[in-house]
């Protein structure tokens, strides 16, 4: 299955006239500053002095600095201090990509995937994501994994999906860790392994991901792939509920009914002391 092949997907914010109107770009002609460089441009950018950022980064970009080239591309893409221009954005990202800039490769992958500023080309999109992934960019790895998982712009291939999502999971992407947990649970793209599933759900839960906290809470309560521990289970369910996970609320109530006052208090204390792993 290849969901996007030959489709003419048009997906943009063009109709949100409000955004364009309110944020209509205006170059702020700021006084000239000497010296500078990339950091000067960054400071100016963070202060909203886009004209200075543009000047500093343009000078650097012309000398082949890929970081400056990438940021200039973003300025044109988002219309920051310049007239929004996809062509200009793509042009600067292509230059940055030649220097191996990971984020430029990633954004070019998206541009090719959606045909924004370039002709839609799924193979090129995949190529850009793979180049960024090979340079260790977890977000590209995760994109590839999800695209193979649902057959978005590529032939559906669960083994490929597992391979790329696992890379992102190992890089610490909590959604990827959660997804790997599900793949191990269901035996998708790999053999089913409830212990591995629990391990990855726990990894994502430790990063504060509510969905994973609910999953590991339920597994701890059942002793499914992990040593049963009711207090720990309740702790995770309390945390997931606190993050607004609806199913966790019911799970938390059901489990709490089975525990003693002391166990409930202990779980509450543990939840209060929880800090997401960085």
């Amino acid at each position: 299955m290849r969901i996007l092949q030959n489709s003419n997907m048009r997906f943009s914010l063009r109709g949100w006239a409000f955004i364009a109107a309110v944020a209509a770009p205006a170059i702020l002609f700021a006084p000239s500053a000497s010296g500078a460089g990339f950091d000067e441009g960054w400071r100016a950018y963070q202060q909203g002095n886009f004209a200075i950022a543009l000047r500093e980064w343009s000078a650097l970009a012309e000398t082949g600095n890929s970081r400056a080239q990438f940021n200039l591309g973003v300025m044109y893409d988002e219309g920051r201090g310049v007239q929004e221009s996809r062509d200009m954005a793509i042009g600067w990202w292509q230059k940055a990509a030649k220097g191996g800039h990971k984020q430029a490769l990633h954004n070019l992958g998206l541009a090719n995937l959606f045909g924004r500023g370039v002709a839609k080309d799924f193979d090129k999109a995949i190529g850009f994501f793979k180049r960024a992934s090979s340079r260790g960019l977890a977000r590209s790895q995760y994109n590839l994994g999800k695209m193979y998982s649902v057959g978005f712009g590529v032939e559906q291939d669960q083994s490929e999906a597992f391979k790329w999502i696992m890379m992102a999971a190992k890089s610490g992407v909590h959604q990827a860790q959660y997804n790997i947990g599900k793949m191990y649970r269901d035996g998708v793209g790999t053999d089913a392994d409830s212990r591995a599933a629990a391990r990855w759900f726990l990894a994502a839960a430790n990063q504060g991901y509510a969905k994973a906290q609910n999953h590991i809470g339920v597994r701890l309560a059942r002793g499914d792939g992990i040593q049963r521990n009711d207090v720990e289970a309740l702790k995770w369910l309390i945390l997931a509920e606190k993050s607004g996970h609806e199913l966790a609320s019911q799970n938390r109530r059901d489990l709490a009914l089975k525990l003693t006052i002391k166990q409930r208090a202990e779980a509450k204390t543990l939840a209060a002391g929880f800090a997401p792993a960085k």
Binding site: W42, F70, N71, Q103, F114
Partner: peptide, 23 residues
């Protein structure tokens, strides 16, 4: 209409993965 709800979800997910300016 073209890709179903799963296609829309994937489209949204990909859209929000775009990088902004980097230090």
């Amino acid at each position: 209409k073209r890709q179903g709800v799963s296609g829309l979800i994937e489209t949204l997910r990909l859209q929000v993965s775009k990088f902004s300016a980097q230090k």
